[in-house]
Simulated assay, not measured.
Amino acid sequence: MFELRTTIRMKRLLVLLMLAFTATGLLAQPAPYPTKSIRVIVPTVARTPIDHATRIIAREFIEAWGQPVLVDNRAAGDGVAAQGMVANAQPDGHTLLMQSTAFVTLPLFSKLPYDTGRDFTPVARIASSSLALVAHPSLAAASVKELIALARRKPGAVSYASYGNGSLTHLAGDVFGGLAAIRLSHAAQRDVPQALGEVMAGRVQMMFLEIAYALPHVEAGALRALATTGRVRSPLMPGLPTLAESGASGYELALWFGAFAPAGTPAPIVERIAAELARILEAPGMDRRMLEQGFEIAWLPAAEFQRFVRGEAQRLSALVKKAVGSRQ
């Protein structure tokens, strides 16, 4: 009888343990995601290369997850406002930021109402590109060397447009001026169309511009391309030298973009978004679709992207200090 009662108690204990493990397992399951529409904030006007690339990805998100995906263009304030919206959003993965190199350049030129290192979670790097240095045809310089010589003869007379203080196009001109030991005049504009319009009209002589934007205007003869900003030549303009080849030794600046979430977004959600982005970018034909927007796929998962962002912030900060020091 004693053995029977012991056996019954052991069975009850085993059942309780199994129930406990089952409950623990259920509690440990990650929350379902996504459970509602996803808002992807893009800090540029519509129809920019990053906007087009984001919309390509957004359509794939919809197909995969069956939830609406809203691409929300917020170009005001040089991208500061857009980043602030994401920094203050609920950290549940339903608000994302698609931001470029400006994520690390904005703090170099502006005091921000948030901390880019503390208030965001880098999710994945998606793609990268070079910029093209383009000039109005009236500029009396057909090459970078001629441009440098002109700017040295007439300090401050050559102007370059950017689409906002702290933008990559601002940094590109500032660093170029520093490394080439020339003084350029910065003409900050509200956005890409306005900056491009100023150069096309000849009111500003040149600018650094996304290659996808520049290419049709260069081919039409409305702009003259002088160089690209990358470490190697762009596959979209293989005949165009880099700035480093053309007299600005040590110049290397890439336009990359990636996905960011608010700080505190649960790691399983960050990993799921990153995994879905990886699947999308590996799909047949996606490399061609990205190249049509001027980008080459440059995938990095969350942990590597976080390290990359920290490294870029340090590298570009040092580059700006070097450029400033060379002008003094």
Rank of each mutant, 00 (worst) to 15 (best):
G258A: 08
E252Q: 13
A81S: 13
R289P: 00
V158H: 02
N165R: 13
A82N: 02
A124R: 01
Y33Q: 00
R272K: 15
G84M: 13
P137H: 12
T101H: 08
T54H: 04
G164C: 08
A102D: 13
M10L: 15
A23W: 15
A263H: 07
T54L: 01
F295M: 02
H94K: 08
A188P: 10
M237Q: 12
L168I: 15
W299M: 04
A141L: 11
Y160R: 00
V45N: 07
F109M: 06
A187I: 12
I56S: 00
P113W: 12
K321M: 04
V134W: 07
L150A: 03
S130G: 06
G173P: 04
E252F: 13
V40M: 14
L106P: 00
L277N: 03
A75D: 11
P137S: 10
L253F: 13
A172Q: 04
R315A: 11
T169D: 14
L26R: 05
S138D: 15
Q194V: 13
P107M: 04
R231N: 11
A135F: 02
R231P: 00
I269S: 03
T229Q: 03
R125N: 07
V309C: 01
R55G: 00
A222W: 09
M98W: 09
S143W: 10
E3H: 10
A82D: 09
P216S: 12
D287E: 15
Q306M: 02
L236Q: 14
A302D: 06
L253K: 01
A195Y: 05
E276I: 00
R74C: 04
G178F: 08
M200W: 03
S130D: 12
R59L: 12
V80F: 09
I269L: 13
G294C: 13
H186S: 06
D191L: 02
I269A: 02
R125V: 01
L26P: 01
G230C: 04
L240S: 09
P235W: 14
P122L: 05
H52W: 13
I8C: 06
